[in-house]
């Protein structure tokens, strides 16, 4: 089995790569920092004795390269059975409000770039009638909030996109899974001071691996975020405005 990890240098991506490599899968690691992706590939090969390779990939710089990347990966490691879209970019909300170029970057990485590469993977899987696409979305995409609405709206759009893709590919035997992540111990949450428990990337990776194996379509991780978001979504807008969340 071959797994393609897009945005392979993030801690969640690396942890997911570990879990699939431990299960004996070949792993393609695609990232902007191709040197690091290659190092990660050596690591998987040494630890688990699997085939692994690093590939250069930029979510936004050249959308037309995304199809070429998928072909390149499949030529090197065989048809992609599982693709994980793991990249994301939180950006700086305030800086994005002041400078649209910054906001645009957040939108393009999290939404446009993700959609572009998902389409490339989807075409390959659709033609074979097999495969699984995992998109890492976020609980931030569940409700627009003053503190992170560029990131949130891009992730929300990604969630909707994955839903549409799932419906399109359902008849083609291609599985599409949306993971709505809460706080995971990554650079995005490193500075965060919160009473809410932050999950380890390793635990998140295991949950993702298991859910993909079972054909789950949408899930929250950590699970309790389903409850939190249920509450947050039910707060009337009139009140929500005053909560400054």
């Amino acid at each position: 089995m071959t797994v393609l990890i897009l945005g392979a240098t993030s801690p969640i991506a690396q942890a997911v790569a570990d879990v699939y490599a431990a299960a004996g899968c070949s792993v393609a690691l695609a990232a902007r920092d191709v040197e690091e992706a290659r190092r990660a590939a050596s690591d998987l090969t040494i630890r688990y004795g699997v085939e692994a390779q690093g590939f250069a990939f930029d979510a936004c710089d050249a959308f037309e390269h995304h199809s070429a990347l998928v072909s390149e990966v499949e030529e090197a490691l065989g048809p992609v059975d599982v693709a994980l879209v793991a990249f994301g970019f939180m950006g700086d909300q305030q800086a994005s409000e002041e400078d649209f170029e910054k906001a645009r970057r957040v939108i393009e990485v999290n939404y446009t770039g993700a959609v572009s590469v998902c389409e490339a993977v989807a075409r390959a899987m659709e033609s074979r009638g097999a495969g699984s696409i995992i998109g890492l979305s976020s609980v931030a995409g569940e409700r627009g909030r003053a503190s992170n609405y560029f990131y949130g709206s891009a992730k929300g759009a990604l969630t909707l996109y994955l839903q549409g893709l799932r419906n399109r590919l359902a008849s083609k035997n291609v599985h599409v899974m949306t993971v709505k992540l809460g706080f995971i111990d990554t650079p995005m949450t490193f500075e965060l001071e919160t009473g809410i428990p932050v999950a380890s990337p390793q635990k998140a990776a295991k949950a993702i691996f298991n859910a993909q194996g079972r054909g789950v379509e949408t899930f929250y991780y950590p699970r309790f975020w389903g409850g939190i978001m249920g509450v947050i979504k039910s707060i009337p807008e009139k009140m929500f405005k005053r909560l400054s969340l």
Binding site: D33, E35, T186
Partner: peptide
Amino acid sequence: ARPESQLQ
């Protein structure tokens, strides 16, 4: 700081 890669 907690870098995740050599570049970081």
